[in-house]
């Protein structure tokens, strides 16, 4: 009976959670955690590998080749190396803040991971305000980076911390305004509802301006080039990561890729129809495929873009993104709602 259910409903979390049996509920929770963990660790890892490979190809290089097939295990080797190194906490650092800010960042990402749906049945809970909560948590991350930067007691990290708040000032607003436009035609803030509302046309086609604004704002939010001001390696050595050593650095690298994958999933859900697609592939595969396509775009931007300067970043945010997102909102209201 249980085995039968397991085979039939392995990714149907709703089936397990809605069952009256407590055992089934617990199995559902464990299954969900395992699936989401595998999803993010495997694809976070793969995107890390993909980034190295793609950027290498853009630069006439081969990227990792020796460890594993096509260098697939290179990142694993790097991870082992980083984990086996000494963890150094700088003398000037605020030890507590320094120790908790990166794990807290991971915890925040896990929050978002648990809230967003991956297919009609693969979701922990269908919150009516799901999207709003996701963006509240995303808005909280720069503050954590700020504490992480200041707690290490390094001047480069402090500059990077200031910059992360500046970027927050410039890009949070356009991002939320373009999300509001999505909520306007998606009929609310439930992510499930937004995806099912895209069964006709993806929102990418309905509001291309909103997509562009949201994509750029998300690049800034997840510190991807050309907005990688926080981690500007040619200016600030490694920004807020300058004094972060071995295991924490591995965590930071993993977070970098996992958050990129997470951001791509959010873009896919909001604008690319999420898990919708022809039925010969399961919904989850569609979502992951779309997310990987978005990630490839992000990586290719990284391979070519020059870093913007702080004042230019703010100017660009307020002079272009905010008006464009407002125009998008108004146009969406006039065309689709009225």
């Amino acid at each position: 009976m249980l085995a039968q259910d397991l085979i039939n409903n392995i990714v149907n979390i709703q089936f397990w959670l809605s069952s009256p049996s407590l055992l089934y509920n617990i199995i559902g929770i464990v299954l969900y955690i395992i699936i989401v963990f595998i999803l993010f660790s495997v694809f976070g890892y793969l995107i890390g590998w993909l980034e190295r490979k793609l950027i290498a190809r853009a630069q006439y290089r081969h990227g990792p080749t020796y460890v594993g097939m096509w260098g697939l295990l290179q990142n694993m080797a790097d991870l082992i190396k980083l984990l086996s190194k000494q963890d150094i906490v700088p003398e000037k650092a605020d030890r507590v803040l320094f120790a908790i800010s990166l794990p807290a960042l991971l915890a925040l990402s896990i929050f978002i991971i648990l809230i967003i749906p991956y297919s009609p049945n693969l979701q922990a809970t269908n919150l009516g305000l799901g999207m709003l909560i996701v963006f509240v948590i995303i808005a909280f991350t720069p503050l954590l980076l700020f504490t992480a930067g200041f707690s290490s007691g390094n001047k480069f990290a402090a500059i990077s911390a200031q910059r992360s708040v500046l970027v927050l000032l410039g890009y949070e607003l356009p991002m939320l305004i373009s999300v509001a436009a999505v909520a306007l035609i998606g009929g609310g803030y439930s992510l499930q509802a937004i995806v099912s509302a895209q069964s006709g046309y993806y929102y990418l086609l309905l509001m291309p301006i909103g997509f562009v604004v949201f994509f750029i704002a998300l690049l800034a939010e997840f510190e991807r080039p050309p907005f990688d001001l926080r981690e500007a390696d040619s200016e600030l050595i490694a920004g807020w990561l300058t004094d972060v050593s071995a295991p924490y650095y591995a965590l930071a690298l993993y977070l970098d890729y996992a958050r990129m994958f997470l951001g791509s999933i959010i873009v896919s859900i909001l604008f690319l129809g999420g898990w919708l697609g022809p039925s010969y592939l399961p919904p989850l595969v569609w979502l992951v495929a779309k997310a990987i396509a978005v990630s490839v775009l992000v990586i290719l931007i990284r391979a070519t873009a020059f870093r913007m300067r702080v004042d230019r970043v703010l100017r660009f945010g307020w002079l272009w993104l905010v008006p464009l997102s407002l125009i998008n909102l108004v146009m969406t209201y006039i065309i689709f709602v009225k």
Partner: peptide
């Protein structure tokens, strides 16, 4: 110079090639 302007080594690698 490309590298100093924050590009991820692409111009650098092209020039070195």
């Amino acid at each position: 110079l490309c590298n100093d302007l924050g590009q991820m080594f692409t111009g650098f690698m092209w020039a070195f090639k």
